[in-house]
Amino acid sequence: MKYLTTVAVVFLSLACATAPAHADASVKDGKVGLSVKGKGLSVKQAGGWMDGHGTGVRARLYTVYKGQRADITRWKEATPVTAGTTQFSNVDWNLNGRSFRNGTWLCIEFNKVDGTPCAKIHR
């Protein structure tokens, strides 16, 4: 019986791993991270963080589709956050279920550090 339960758990894990992709993602590039929440081609929220604090830290979101870049937000001031000995700058946007084309890359950039992580939005 224990063997059957293990097989069922493995099967369900594999089935979930091959489920259709959606807009949820979390990626990091160097000192910069991006988090995207949504379903299908619709994005509800997106945000990012940069390791460290600083004055005048700002970020914006942009998309890349078929080689064409388009800014989708204006520069926004990041909030400095300290959690124990970790310091980072955080920024979030409510995109209200904004829809994107299949295969669009949603990216974030900060004005104080290199690294522009991107998450691919696809079905």
Rank of each mutant, 00 (worst) to 15 (best):
A46L: 11
I72K: 08
L14C: 15
N96T: 08
G30T: 05
L12M: 12
S42M: 09
T73P: 04
F88W: 06
E77I: 12
N111G: 07
Y3K: 07
F88E: 01
N90F: 00
V10Q: 04
C118A: 15
T73H: 07
L106Q: 02
R74N: 13
L106P: 07
G103Y: 15
C118D: 08
S26K: 10
A59E: 07
R60W: 03
V36D: 00
G54Q: 00
D71A: 13
K120S: 06
R69F: 08
D24V: 12
D24I: 05
Y62M: 06
W49I: 02
S26N: 12
V32D: 03
K28F: 02
E77W: 10
F100G: 03
N111A: 06
L12W: 09
A17P: 02
D29Y: 10
V32A: 07
W49D: 00
R69C: 04
A25N: 14
C16N: 12
T82V: 14
R98P: 03
V81K: 09
T79S: 02
S89Q: 03
K76Y: 00
V57H: 00
G103A: 13
Y65S: 11
Y65T: 11
L95S: 10
A19I: 06
G52V: 00
G84C: 05
H122S: 15
F88Q: 01
V10E: 03
G47F: 08
D51G: 04
T85L: 01
T85Q: 03
P80F: 00
S35A: 15
L14V: 14
K39Q: 15
P117W: 06
V7D: 06
R101N: 15
D92T: 13
K28Y: 05
H122G: 15
K66Y: 09
G40A: 07
V27F: 09
G115R: 04
T82C: 01
L61R: 06
K39H: 10
T85Y: 01
R74P: 03
G67D: 12
H22R: 12
V57P: 00
K2L: 14
K66L: 11
G97T: 06
V113L: 01
G97S: 06
G33S: 14
I121A: 06
A17D: 05
N102C: 08
P117M: 06
V9I: 15
S35H: 10
L41R: 07
G48W: 09
R123W: 05
W75S: 11
K112S: 07
A119V: 08
T18S: 05
L12Q: 04
S89F: 00
T79G: 00
L34V: 05
M1R: 12
G97L: 09
S99T: 14
V81E: 01
G103E: 10
M1I: 11
V91E: 02
R101D: 10
K2Q: 09
A19Q: 12
N102R: 13
I72Y: 08
